[in-house]
Simulated assay, not measured.
Amino acid sequence: MRLRLGLFALVSAVVALAAIGISSFVVDPENIGVRLALYALALLAIIATILFVVFAIVSPMFGRTGVSPTQLADAVAAGRQAYARVTSAVPTGAQLNGAYAYDARLVVAATDVPAYEVSDRVRVHRSDGAVAGRGEIVTVVRLAADAPQVAVTAGPASTPQDVSVPQQAPAWPAR
Results as ranks from 00 to 15, higher is better:
I50Y: 14
D103L: 02
G21D: 11
Y100D: 13
F55L: 15
V113P: 01
V86P: 14
S59N: 10
Y100L: 10
F25Q: 09
T65H: 07
G133C: 11
G133I: 02
R134S: 11
Q161M: 03
V152Y: 06
P173E: 15
R126K: 13
R4L: 15
S127E: 13
F62V: 08
R175T: 14
F8A: 15
T70G: 05
W172H: 13
V90P: 05
P114K: 05
A77T: 12
G93T: 06
V14G: 12
P148C: 08
A19W: 00
F25K: 04
F25S: 10
A104H: 02
Y102C: 03
F52T: 06
F8H: 14
Y39H: 08
A9C: 12
I32E: 10
A84V: 03
V86M: 09
E136F: 12
T159Q: 08
F62R: 12
N97W: 03
G33P: 01
A75N: 11
P160F: 06
V76A: 13
V26I: 15
A84Q: 01
A42Y: 07
D128F: 11
A16S: 08
S12D: 07
L41W: 02
A145C: 01
V27Y: 05
A174T: 12
S164K: 15
I137N: 08
G63W: 08
R64P: 01
E117D: 11
R123F: 09
V86C: 09
L36M: 06
R2A: 03
A94L: 02
P170A: 06
P170C: 03
V54I: 15
I47M: 05
P148W: 04
Q167S: 13
P166K: 11
L106E: 01
L96Y: 13
V27G: 05
Q71K: 07
A110W: 00
A45Q: 06
A99K: 02
V138N: 04
V14Q: 14
R175Q: 15
G98T: 06
G93M: 09
I32Y: 04
E30R: 12
A13N: 04
P91I: 12
S127D: 14
A13G: 04
A151S: 10
R80H: 02
R126I: 14
A82V: 07
L36I: 04
V163R: 15
I22D: 03
V113Y: 00
W172R: 14
G33C: 05
T111C: 07
A75Y: 10
G6P: 01
V152D: 12
I50K: 06
H125V: 11
T92A: 01
R35H: 10
A40F: 11
T49M: 12
V140W: 13
R80M: 02
A89Y: 09
V118D: 03
A110R: 12
Q167R: 13
Q168V: 08
G155H: 11
P60V: 07
L143P: 05
N97E: 10
V113F: 01
V67E: 10
R134W: 00
A77G: 10
A18G: 05
D146F: 12
A37N: 04
D128Y: 11
